[in-house]
Design a binder for these strands. Structure first.
Lengths: 340, 340
DNA sequence: CTGAAAGCGCTTACAG
DNA sequence: CTGAAAGCGCTTACAG
């Protein structure tokens, strides 16, 4: 019995036309107060809820957006609470605008056909690159998009990015300030123009500023995961260059790294200082707590929704590019070089 | 231009009726191979995708399900990677069945009206209780549901639960086996028939079995969060009963606890042994790594989807209640009592 | 201020 | 094997 009642039923009972019912519901047209009350009462009584499908069949918009998150394993979203926080932010931003959020984990075979099939109003896309197969497909959809952490060069695209270069700089500078000179980097895929690329640029700038020559041996391109970080510890531990500082470009990898260090008998921060990136919820509870680059992930998600809806509604007065600031949070995982 | 092409356009170009096009798309009716090919070719060329709204307007089903996750802060989903893993599992299960997943974070005011409005095929509901305001509302929707971690007594309900009692028992037994007798419990809301309730029952059973009298002072009902665990450490540290073992009913609270212990100078596991619950992705990378009760969260999510779709499609031969097993994972956070 | 009618893009009997 | 037609539940000009 639940879904049977339609605008027609309301019209019949309230003794008006369906057009009037529609007008009442949408606040469109001119309807007398009396009629309005009468109709609203019936709507109340029958607990009427308009059909979204019928609406979007007419309107062409669905009040549905999707968050697109890249895959790692076939069909499985990244094992990183970072994404959860981001998605939370999006969901939270959307609920204030009566829009629902579809969660879409993509792999390289995703064809996005359901985006058109469902008349999605827009997409929030996380972490694609210009070279990603998904990138062209998404653009060809002709649907409003906001890209998160994607660093696409096309200035026409709406993007919310982090000031990654500054993050890379700040973390490195911090280590240098503590006296470290052999500073390794744990980075995810180092693609031109990608997130990690900019963090790395910041790292290089800090080195340059302090006259420290860059050393390619110190750059470890790893899986940006907890396992990736763990494995990196082995490589760093036996490194010829006497590394005393490591900058991991994600907190999850930093966590793996610290554990890995611990297992080969290197102490953090006594032997090696470690800086992370993201400021995931657990960083301050780690032992040692993690010095890291903070970004406000939830509000980033919210910003993306706002931007997307502005774009959809044509109220896009905001600029097409928002860069979220970062800050350094100093905790216990970093220490002065050779301090005893 | 993207969304303009409809079944009508295909029909015109292919020189057939729209009914035939529809039959080709759905594999219904009888269509000659020739016609089929012709139509399919046109569909290919025009990149035609059927409109989901038009379909669900007829069919009454939308191929859309929602994952309903309880709020903590107003509109903000729980700060616990557990939910992320669960949602991942659901998303993953759904994508294999051409169903999309809407993410819905609810607070006590949620009225679920969009469930009917959108003709959602079903709901996967996480962690409600019989007393939850959401519970009655959801039932009155008359929509297929699968409840996760909800322990509802109505046998007609489809549920995927964990063997929490066994989990509580196993963890406690493990501590007792190591010689601990003053074993505290860190539990979230201890509602009759809720997740924590059963874990607690398991704890009591283990105590009873070993002739250890239960001590209400040792049961700390806390916020099941990392902060909650942290704060609990203060209380436990100065506890009069000389606690040597703690069983935290979630890994996040265990993490907070261990850090809290550390901060007041109690070593884990030397002074206190700690057991967690969930086996979140980071547990084995903690220092010390966490002894915990493992559940396969992702496959739990997948099981829920399967169950839901079986129910929707009327192929529900499976029983209405699935209980996922747990196991004890022994790591470094537990140690023999007074071992030196 | 109110209503009749067309049409959004499909599916589904029903003829032929 | 194929097509004409009705109808799902809305919204939107257009009359009146």
């Amino acid at each position: 019995m639940s879904n049977k009642v339609s605008i027609k039923d309301i019209a019949k009972i309230a003794n008006v036309s369906i057009a009037t019912v529609s007008n009442v519901i949408n606040g469109t047209g001119r309807v007398s107060a009396d009629t309005k009350n009468k109709v609203n009462k019936v709507i109340q009584e029958l607990q009427f809820v308009p059909s979204a499908s019928a609406r979007s069949l007419k309107d062409k918009n669905s009040h549905l957006i999707a968050v697109v998150v890249p895959f790692v394993e076939k069909g499985i979203l990244q094992d990183n609470p970072f994404y959860w926080e981001l998605v939370r932010g999006v969901e939270n931003g959307a609920r204030n605008h009566e829009v629902q959020v579809i969660l879409l984990g993509i792999d390289e075979h995703e064809d996005f056909s359901f985006v058109r099939g469902r008349h999605l109003d827009g997409l929030i896309v996380v972490g694609v690159y210009e070279q990603s197969p998904a990138y062209r497909k998404i653009l060809s959809l002709g649907v409003p998009c906001v890209f998160l952490d994607s660093y696409l060069s096309d200035p026409a695209l709406y993007q919310v990015d982090l000031d990654d270069e500054a993050g890379g700089y700040l973390g490195t500078k911090h280590l240098i300030g503590l006296g470290h000179r052999a500073i390794a980097v744990l980075t995810g895929r180092l693609e031109q123009g990608g997130v990690n690329y900019f963090r790395y640029q910041g790292y290089l700038r800090a080195l340059r500023e302090s006259g420290i020559p860059e050393n390619p041996d110190l750059v470890l391109e790893i899986d940006s995961s907890i396992q990736g970080g763990y494995q990196a510890a082995q490589r760093l531990g036996h490194h010829k260059d006497g590394i005393t500082g490591v900058f991991a470009f994600s907190d999850v990898s930093a966590m793996g790294l610290i554990r890995g260090m611990h297992d080969i008998g290197m102490r953090v921060p006594e032997d090696v200082s470690v800086v992370g990136f993201d400021d995931i919820f657990y960083t301050q509870y780690m032992i040692p707590s993690l010095t890291t680059i903070r970004q406000d992930i939830v509000s980033k998600g919210q910003a993306a929704v706002t931007m997307l809806l502005d774009q959809i509604n044509g109220t896009a007065t905001t600029s097409r590019r928002v860069t979220v600031p970062v800050s350094l949070i100093v905790r216990q995982s970093t220490n002065s070089f050779r301090k005893i």
